[in-house]
Design a protein around this nucleic acid. Structure first.
Lengths: 234, 234
DNA sequence: TTGGAGTAGTGGATCAGCCACTCAACCAGA
DNA sequence: TCTGGTTGAGTGGCTGATCCACTACTCCAA
């Protein structure tokens, strides 16, 4: 169960990462055009078809806008991009984003927790308690991290709001690929489970007000560890 | 200025919409495989290359997962999808989503407004006041709607949180393509500007608490109109 | 000065082909 | 009977070449 599934990486995966990274690190500034497809493809040693696949991905992510006859223009993606940009930004954008992510995590997360506390079903509450128990017995930081992520998914589901579910998925998708760098809160799963318990019990007790307070507290605590706050190691 | 820019639609655009719609309307249920690429391409009368471009889009949107040698499997996208799914869901998913969208709009929007009230610069405040004035003088519902959307962008920017900016962009991208069906609040731009004024003045006055209350009120009022509440027409 | 024509450069799409992966079925050996 | 290996069918990944459609710019004529 500790086995990590081998991920098959295609040429287009690699290419998308490389071009995406070049864009995010400023090689192609916002407003500028990428080189023409034929040139770009040969510079990376791939066919134009594969390159185009990569460009479709980057366009979907909001990094570029491709126009027939004109070329692919790098967007002002920090201003105009959508949530789908988050995973890429977090991977290559450096940690300048982390403050925003943690703030959004706390403010949005606590709103979702409050809704969940009002609307959770018995099945969802039972699911949360099970996950909490599993968290306390996690054998590694990584395992703890994945269980905690699962908690957030259940809470989002319990909010009965489809948009919140999708947003939480997006935030988790942004966070988990670089989760290895943010394992601070998960080094002591038992202690973390204790921290999370208050929030989950408030949800299960249908106490919306308390759940929000406990959520804000939980997100603040774990957020500090994720930012590499040194208190944990003292 | 009332001219609508002609949008050039490519084969792949159309194809993506058609397949996307077929998925969202249940022709290909979650967990099932789309037909093989060669067959699917010929059934739509396009080449496999064009079809693959479309599939890349759908995969990025989170509707399918494509595996080498296996095929393209429709995901349980309502549970596992991300925010990028929102535009598609709103276009083809019927209005079952509207409750979630309006709720998220209000709860997330008021959080962002509260942050903006704390952090807005003088330039941003001035921008908001200008937009408010333009809103009061808008000559059509559509124009009013677009100006109001611009207000939300500025407020998101004023929150100084990159994640909120991206989330607001995503929500607006989901909403504006079907904005014509949600023009209720914008039929009287002058009245709407009046409704919005309280919120914007609270932001400009750096009154976080009041701004949040005004925001919740504003989102509730406009949300009712968007849901086709009949009060407006009485 | 303005409008139209022509051209270079760029992306969109088609077509054909070959390689790599997955999965299921079958067979042989323990 | 069970397990492991091989094979083959079906599927996606990628290459390479070609032609068409669009954009932007330049030049020339009215």
């Amino acid at each position: 169960m500790d086995q990590t599934m081998l991920v098959r990486e295609t040429i287009v995966d690699q290419l998308t990462q490389m071009i995406g990274q070049d864009i995010l690190t400023g090689k192609y500034p916002s407003g500028s055009n990428l080189p023409p497809e034929r040139i770009l493809a040969s510079s990376y040693g791939v066919t134009r078809t594969s390159l185009k696949h990569s460009l479709v991905r980057l366009e979907e992510a909001g990094l570029i806008e491709t126009k027939h006859g004109v070329g692919s223009t790098v967007t002002d993606f920090l201003a105009t991009g959508g949530a789908s940009l988050l995973p890429l930004l977090m991977r290559f954008g450096g940690f300048e984003l982390i403050d925003s992510v943690l703030e959004a995590r706390a403010l949005l997360g606590s709103v979702i927790v409050e809704r969940a506390a009002t609307l959770a079903t018995e099945a969802e509450k039972s699911e949360l308690r099970t996950l909490l128990a599993r968290l306390g017995e996690a054998k590694s930081s990584k395992e703890a991290q994945l269980i905690e992520a699962e908690c957030h998914k259940v809470i989002a589901r319990a909010s009965k709001n489809a948009v919140f579910i999708l947003l939480v998925n997006t935030l988790l998708n942004a966070y988990l690929p670089i989760g290895d760098l943010l394992l601070g809160p998960f080094k002591d799963p038992k202690s973390l489970a204790g921290d999370l318990r208050g929030m989950i019990e408030a949800i299960c007790g249908n106490n919306a007000e308390l759940s929000k307070l406990m959520a804000l507290k939980y997100f603040e605590t774990t957020g500090k560890f994720m930012k590499g706050d040194k208190k944990w190691e003292e």
